[in-house]
Design a protein around this nucleic acid. Structure first.
Lengths: 188, 188
DNA sequence: GTCTATAAACGGATAGAC
DNA sequence: GTCTATCCGTTTATAGAC
């Protein structure tokens, strides 16, 4: 009954959480060692270099989050979809001081190798593509503000969410994420 | 004729640049030592602890940038002001891989003491207040999109700029900052 | 003010026993 | 797979000579 999770998975989960809280340069194998209860050398057995660990954390995170995003009920109106989307950021933030793993790594990009940059870029593009579709639907329905090229606006909205989740943590509030949604919903 | 700058100022300037590129946990006293050409112990003479150095870097940056922002020609139309504002981010980014120092520290906030958090919050609020005024002007003129509470939209725009400058660096482009401006300019 | 010297902890990583 | 032991460079910081 009790959930059994491999050491490898525990390392990966704790690594993701630490990155979301403190960034790439803000956590160590020692932190993970203390959290999981195995020696650092055991972690090196699964992930020879720190970059190997981080790349896999990004891929897992990306798959999970994009899975959730694409599972948003397709029959919803565009403004409702945007609200659901905002919830993902809110839930991640919670009270734990965690922001989007890929948003954090975008800030840390100066310390990262190219394969991780690529993975983060892919996550960004997937989100922006999904938002583009939502904007197109919103324009058709008249539920979302229509102003400019869909792709451009989608990138701006995604940037607004990423910036907003950082500001929310900075100010210990999560009202700022709702404001992002409100900025694109047509006022009656 | 040659510009003379004190060791203290050089340390402060290099520290700001390094934070903008690699974040709080991504640079060291040794980096500064190599750049300025003095030993790390000499840097500790001016800034006993790393947090002292970072706090002062934030204050200097904040004063300089807010000075520039408030020096934007008051007679410009609101959309022109927004374009000028975007230039600050573009110029900072340049080709140097630097993003807004306070945006970076917002990402690193989990590693920072409370006095630095306060200073970063103050910078955010000052920008958001300025943007609120611009939005009010734009609503009056009909040059900027009017949708929702001014303060809320101002916070969203600032978040969009912060997120956008990170995405711009991630993708090695700076077109994304123009898209943020375009998203709030009334299409003819 | 700047240096040398040093401390004491931390960082990622590896070799080899079990 | 996990451990002990270890390597070696890094990091922040201090004491004291010049």
């Amino acid at each position: 009954m009790g959930k059994t999770s491999t050491v490898r998975d525990q390392v990966l989960n704790h690594a993701a959480a630490l990155i979301m809280q403190r960034g790439y340069n803000g956590f160590s194998y020692r932190d993970l060692s203390n959290l999981v209860g195995v020696k650092t050398s055991s972690i090196h057995y699964y992930f020879p270099a720190k970059d190997d660990l981080v790349l896999e954390a990004v891929n897992e995170y990306s798959n999970r989050v994009l899975g959730n995003v694409h599972a948003v009920d397709a029959t919803l109106s565009a403004d409702k979809k945007l609200r659901e989307y905002a919830k993902f950021f809110t839930e991640t933030l919670g009270d734990s001081g965690r922001i989007c793993l890929c948003g954090m790594l975008a800030a840390d990009i100066g310390s990262l190798p190219d394969n991780i940059r690529l993975a983060v870029q892919t996550f960004f593009k997937a989100n922006e593509n999904w938002l583009t579709q939502v904007l197109a639907q919103g324009a058709e329905e008249g539920t979302l503000v229509e102003n400019g090229q869909l792709e451009s606006v989608a990138r701006t909205i995604f940037s607004a969410f990423q910036g907003s989740v950082m500001a929310s943590r900075l100010f210990h509030t999560n009202a700022r994420l709702d404001e992002v949604v409100a900025a694109w919903i047509v006022v009656p």
